[in-house]
Amino acid sequence: MVRALGHSTISLIHSLGEFALFTLQSLGETWRCRKLGRRVLRALFEQGVRCLPVILIVGAFTGLVLGLQGYHVLNRFGSESLLGALVSLSLVRELGPVLAALMLVGQAGSALAAELGIQRNSEQIAALETMGVNSRGYLVTPRLLAALLAYPMQTALFVSVGLWGGWLSGSLMLGLEAGVYWSSVERAVEPADVRECMIKAGVFGLLTIAVCCYCGFNAHRNRAATGARAVSASTTRAVVLSCILVLAADYVITSFLM
């Protein structure tokens, strides 16, 4: 048992080191990549435009629920006027970056892990290497750079739509004055909150897309499965690991920034 535990620990440390190297080396390829701009734009389309509907829908419903729950709780203490503060701070500090990241993992991250897994499986990555093309620079670097841009933008959209959702349920449906709601939002949110939100979004984006790329890129190294099963196993692993990492990183970043 001790041996198994030791083996697992060493294997975990080895994987972490490999993942860190994979991410840093891929980012390091930024300066050597050719025609990078076009591929970053394509990745931005995948992580941005294609994920827009899910971000807008989930953002709106999160705001609606926060407005509804918040209004009834604050009503007990006669503090409905603070609804804007409750909705905005919840969204900006926590729910916006975390939920947007989880949605992006589900939509863009899983697709990315599966795509890279299939490319590995069908020897497309090996073909790039035999052509002298740096496969990481070609396939991973643009995705990481796009994540650094797309996640903060998607989070900002998520928060904006969420605020309107809160206004819809709090003011339009439950009768709180719109001016009271928006002035409460304005007073509550400080530049430091927005900065925290953007830092979280950037870190979550980099972490989750790097994990998805790493899992898909190394789908062939899965000893338990081969072929299509290896692709599905690596996609599942990518999504689960990304979700855990988002929540763990959220705790770490919050504890540093609070």
Binding site: Q119, S122, E123, Q124, A127, L128
Partner: peptide
Amino acid sequence: SYLFQSNALL
């Protein structure tokens, strides 16, 4: 150049 059995086209 290397021509793969599966063609390995992107």
